[in-house]
Design a protein around this nucleic acid. Structure first.
Length: 497
RNA sequence: GCCCUCAUGGUCUAGUGGUCAGGAUACCGGGUUCUCAGCCCGGGGGCCGGGGUUCGACUCCCCGUGGGGGUACCA
């Protein structure tokens, strides 16, 4: 059996979209699972919308989630170039072949004329497809039209009768009535091929064995099949993937929030979590396992198991998954990932000393159990990095405005200030000692203390967290909070009691 | 309009001509004598509707309905 070769063929009209990443991932997983090759091809035949910058953005997105390619514009390969705008001569050869065999013909209709006629057809309740006006023009008529200054595009002649059947790995056999297809353009007036022409030629020339793409292309496939047939190409296998929808069940778009893959990096997602999440939209192992690392994904992926129904991009679930990855990852790795986030928030300096860096790993280790996004470190772990943290509502309501609290905080500050050793055990002993002396439960000291030192009512073990803060910082915060409390500055701000 | 396609709790999904329709997430409740957005335990909630086939249908067929895609000199 021939080598498995799949490809991802984005058009460079913007950054890598979540849907594009999903398609790329599936094609890549299949190739890797089969031990085949994965090709990146850029389909920039839309001269108007294609941009240079998007190319870089596509590379960045793919790199981020760990998709690599064996052949592509940057890498080259045996079937290059891998950018369609650099392959115009190739497409023209095949267009000429079709022209020669009579399966294609020049069409002189202008876009305005086309639109007008389609409008009429629509009004009559007819399908608004190309009416075939230029199908059988005589030489003389063509000359006359060209004398008018018209520049033709080239159309492909659809087979008159019968059905074109698409054999799809995911969807089975899908039949399309040829009579319902209009002759479509294969070369634009500008000389550029259309998508239909370019994919067919490139997939053939690049020896693509499996065309794995989003479902939106399923209805175009019979056109491609007819082109392949007319050109004498052996059709590849097809697999049309379910598309990704927004929470309102319409196609995922900007209205739904972030659609660019890299926006999720910005939001604090780990690439492996995003990859895992994307892999689980429209596919599952059939087992109950949901957390799969790269190797497991590659090992277990089966195209036959891909679902036919569209999936919704559920940010909640993605966030949960990210939290699981954070929890399981080792602190050193998470630290690496979180550093730029903290730096961007201005919470750590640009160059961390080895000691400071070691300390940061400990902070991360303490926090990662309960964070879901890297950006949670900026909000929930803020107090590790600065004295400028807010006292949240619950802390104000439950503890900080209580009458007895300021004195308790001062008393605790005094005890902690004189501690010889600053570690979990000594801190815990001091805190519990105070509680005993006051004849109150430890909680009555612990909670106000947490509220004072972190501004929050939740977080990791208080003693462990205090250990990672300098002794004088803790003491200072206790005294500052006591003072603010006495001054009535720590009443709830939402006006509620 | 026409063509194609999809349909299991809110969401991601497993699954079968006879099942207590399974898991995860989200939600709710309880526990965790330092908190919870963490952890543990528990709970509610589902086979789109109508016909048929069948002893029996969530499962097979047909028709609706709803979603998506195509019908472009966009890809």
């Amino acid at each position: 059996m021939a080598e498995v070769r799949t490809r991802f063929a984005p058009s460079p009209t913007g950054a890598l979209h979540v849907g594009g990443a999903h398609t790329a991932l599936f094609a890549w997983l299949f190739a890797r699972h089969q031990g085949g090759k994965f090709v990146l091809r850029i389909e920039d035949t839309d001269e108007v919308r294609s941009t240079e910058e998007s190319l870089g953005a596509i590379y960045d997105g793919l790199n981020w989630i760990g998709i690599d390619w064996d052949e592509g514009p940057d890498l080259g390969g045996p079937y290059g170039p891998y950018i369609q705008s650099e392959r115009l001569d190739t497409y023209n050869e095949y267009v000429d072949q079709l022209l020669g065999s009579g399966r294609a013909y020049p069409c002189y209709c202008t876009p305005e004329e086309l639109e007008e006629r389609q409008e009429v057809m629509r009004k009559r309740g007819l399908p608004p497809r190309y009416d075939g006006r230029c199908r059988d023009l005589s030489e003389e008529e063509r000359r006359r039209l060209e004398a008018e200054g018209r520049k033709p595009c080239i159309r492909f002649r659809i087979r008159e009768g019968g059905t074109t059947v698409v054999n799809d790995i995911i969807r089975g056999q899908v039949g399309f009535d040829n009579a319902l297809m209009g002759d479509f353009v294969i070369r634009k007036t500008s000389g550029y091929p259309t998508y239909h022409m370019a994919v067919v030629v490139d997939d053939h020339l690049m020896q693509i064995s499996h065309v794995i793409r989003a479902e939106e292309h399923l209805s175009n496939t019979p056109r491609h099949l007819q082109l392949m047939d007319a050109l004498g190409f052996e059709p590849p296998q097809f697999a049309h993937l379910p598309i990704i929808l927004g929470p309102d069940r319409t196609k995922l778009s900007k209205r739904h929030g972030a659609v660019n893959l890299m926006d999720y990096k910005q939001q604090g997602f780990l690439p492996e979590a995003m990859r895992n999440f994307l892999a689980l939209i429209g596919w599952s192992t059939g087992s109950e396992q949901e957390i799969l690392d790269l190797d497991e994904l590659v090992e277990k992926f089966r195209l036959e198991e891909v679902s036919k129904s569209p999936g919704i991009f559920d940010l909640e679930k993605a966030t949960w998954l990210n939290g699981e990855y954070l929890k399981r990852a080792d602190a050193e790795y998470v630290t690496e990932m979180v550093e730029p986030v903290l730096r961007q928030a201005g919470l750590i300096e640009a160059d961390l000393s080895p000691e400071r860096r070691e300390w940061l790993v400990k902070v991360v280790d303490l926090m990662k159990e309960r964070t879901r996004l890297l950006t949670d470190f900026v909000s929930w772990a803020r107090y590790f990095f600065t004295d400028e943290y807010p006292y949240d509502e619950r802390a104000r309501k439950k503890w900080l405005r209580r009458e007895e609290v300021p004195d308790r905080l001062d008393a605790l500050a005094e005890r902690l200030e004189t501690l010889e050793a600053w570690n979990v055990d000594s801190i815990e002993a001091a805190v519990r000692g105070l509680a005993d002396e006051l004849e109150v439960s430890a909680a009555k000291v612990i909670h106000p203390c947490r509220s004072a030192v972190t501004g929050q009512t939740i977080g990791p073990s208080l003693f462990h967290l205090m250990e990672l803060l300098p002794q004088e910082t803790v003491v200072g915060r206790l005294r500052r909070t006591a003072e603010l409390s006495r001054a009535g500055e720590l009443e709830p701000t939402d006006g509620e009691g």
